[in-house]
Structure formats: C-alpha cells, structure tokens
Amino acid sequence: MPRAIVLDGKDNVATLIDPGRTGERCALQGEAGGETVLLQDVPFGHKVCIRATAVGADVLKYGQVIGRASAALRVGEHVHVHNVESARGRGDRPKGGER
C-alpha cells in the first residue's frame, strides 16, 4: 500500500512517498492516521487531498498556507498545479496575488 505523510494536524493534503494508482488505498502516516482511496494516479512525491476543500480556500501543508484551491478538492484527489495556485510574487494578478 502506498504511504502518504501528513505533516501537521491542520493539513488538507498528504505527500505520497510511493507511487499510487487510481482506486488504491494509501496509508496515512505522521500527524494523521487511516487510509485514503486515490481517485487518480498520484506520482511519487505528489500530494493527495485528505480533507474536502472549497474553491478559493487555503491549501495547508506543514500547517502553513502553500497556496489556494483553484478548484474544489475532493478527498483522494491529486493536488497539484492544476487545482492549487500560488498567492506570492504574482505580477500577473492584482495585488501580486495576495488577498
């Protein structure tokens, strides 16, 4: 079973430290336990959503904001540049991306 590390109890993502396939269960380790069923293939080192997150909400890893959800995130979904975006240094956005 692929392993996924949760770094802080507040996090809504976990980091896979083995490659995961669609439909596979991954074992949560670290600051949360249990299992999450992967809705998509998630490569080694990529993130999976472990807590449903609304569009525009903060994405948390290390208990810190790593960006905001650019689409609603379902539990088990691959979380990456297609559905989370940076809020820093964004010259292409008003106010540099900050809210």
Binding site: K47, I66, S86, R88, G89, R90
Partner: peptide
Amino acid sequence: EREAIARGMDIRGTNPTPDNIRGGLSTIEE
C-alpha cells in the same frame, strides 16, 4: 517580491521550476 510583481509577469514555471513541479512541488510557498 515587489520587484517581481512590478514586472507584471507570472513567476510560476520559473520558480517553482518545471523539474520542481514534476517532483510534486506545486507553489513557491510549498
């Protein structure tokens, strides 16, 4: 950061880099 914003461009793809992104890093914050 102000300098980057003043240039009016999107830094994504420069930092994090394409290989950072392939390695699972989604944002500069992460």
